[in-house]
Design a protein around this nucleic acid. Structure first.
Lengths: 227, 227
DNA sequence: CCACTAAATTAGCTTTACCTAACGTAGTAG
DNA sequence: CTACTACGTTAGGTAAAGCTAATTTAGTGG
């Protein structure tokens, strides 16, 4: 019943991204994700709830309604098409496009979105590997695991990079850890919190915390133990 | 001292565009141009004056300071590069791009602007013929006259279309009245307020009020009187 | 000179979306 | 059971940018 302002859109999108497992999202998580204080969240959630975009039981967190989810997917779609466009057509680096897309997603008309989508080749995934919802709001569901969670010897296919940290993205690109790449876990040193990976024939040692956002599809094991 | 919000940018740009002849811009004109009420303008002008972006003598209208003009030119540059990009790269019609550019001009980063400018071929003019200020804020000055003001028999070169009305722009395109076109005034019927033009070998009768925004460069006369 | 009009300004209110400070509640530790 | 802590909510405040209604000012006609 209210116009979907930039802020409201941001809350809906954040809710969608944090809801992942269907669990309600606590106020504090939303606040952290959006970079605002908790009272602002309580307040905004109440307003979104009044418009039936989210449901909210006091002290139990918020979740999107079907209507809210539809709006959220619209924004996610815009964001991901924009990122793809910025990389594929404008030639920007994938480690830099997030912030621009974050703003532009709220300000382009459907007409411009359509043209951008066409120019980018109607992509099904954005440059970080995230699936792009179609215009009807359908999103391919995947079950991926974090590369940080794989045991020694596992092989996997990189599918999504959920991290937003620019320098880190640049690093992943440098070593070839991008969607589509094959990777193998050579060594896991839990005590030190490091992992040794093999990507494109080369080995790299990385902090496993940094790998949390690298989502992979585990491959069938083929002689994983030895050399 | 304040951040240049979208609104502030809009006021500066409007001021720049309306200042044309160096005359101070009255409150009412700004209000009409921006689609807000007069008190909102008085108020905002006071705030911009506090930041030394405009100068304002009560009841005498506002004018930009050098600093304000610099900021205004930045926005004008963005707007015109965006329009060119939307037409040349995204393939949108010139009659439709204004509104999109009007919003996007406030929301793209310098990085994206640079990429867009490159893709559009570093244009010197936008699709409506307006010169694009360079990055340093220099704008080619022209002295054009309105096509509506030309006498019978005059020949001219169309340089800029200052009109924003979509359907009208579509009409001009249809008859070939676009920047670069040669036009000749065949007849002026002042009483009826119509003009008969010859464009690309064909004649068209048009209300002269509608032609006010078609800015031309008058050509040397060559046997203008007779057939 | 007075009255009227048009334009500009002042005063005061609204909405959005944030904030801090104070308060409540639920779950854990002793 | 009590006390502590973390988190959430309530209360109340701010800044931006708009609005309406009332007032002031400047210019014009009689």
């Amino acid at each position: 019943m209210h116009p979907l302002t930039r802020s409201r859109q941001d809350y809906l999108k954040a809710l969608f991204l944090l809801e992942a497992e269907g669990a309600a999202v606590p106020t504090s998580r939303l606040a952290a994700h959006l970079g605002v204080k908790a009272p602002s969240v309580t307040n905004m959630i109440a307003r979104l709830a009044a418009d039936r975009l989210v449901r909210h039981s006091p002290r139990a967190g918020a979740r999107l309604t079907a209507h809210g989810r539809r709006e959220a997917l619209r924004i996610v779609r815009r964001h991901r098409i924009l990122e793809t466009f910025l990389v594929r057509v404008l030639g920007l680096d994938w480690s830099l496009v997030h912030d621009d897309a974050e703003i532009l997603e709220h300000h382009i008309s459907d007409r411009v979105l359509g043209a951008i989508d066409r120019l980018a080749g109607h992509p099904a995934e954005d440059p970080h590997g995230h699936p792009i919802p179609d215009a009807a709001g359908h999103l391919a569901r995947r079950s991926l695991v974090s590369l940080a969670a794989l045991p020694r010897g596992a092989r996997a296919l990189v599918r999504e990079i959920q991290d937003l940290d620019g320098p880190r993205l640049a690093r992943w690109k440098e070593i070839g850890l991008v969607p589509g790449a094959s990777v193998r876990v050579r060594e896991v040193r839990g005590l030190e919190g490091t992992v040794e990976l093999e990507v494109a024939g080369r080995r790299h040692v990385t902090g496993s915390a940094a790998l949390a956002g690298v989502m992979v599809e585990r491959a069938m094991e083929g002689g994983s133990r030895g050399a």
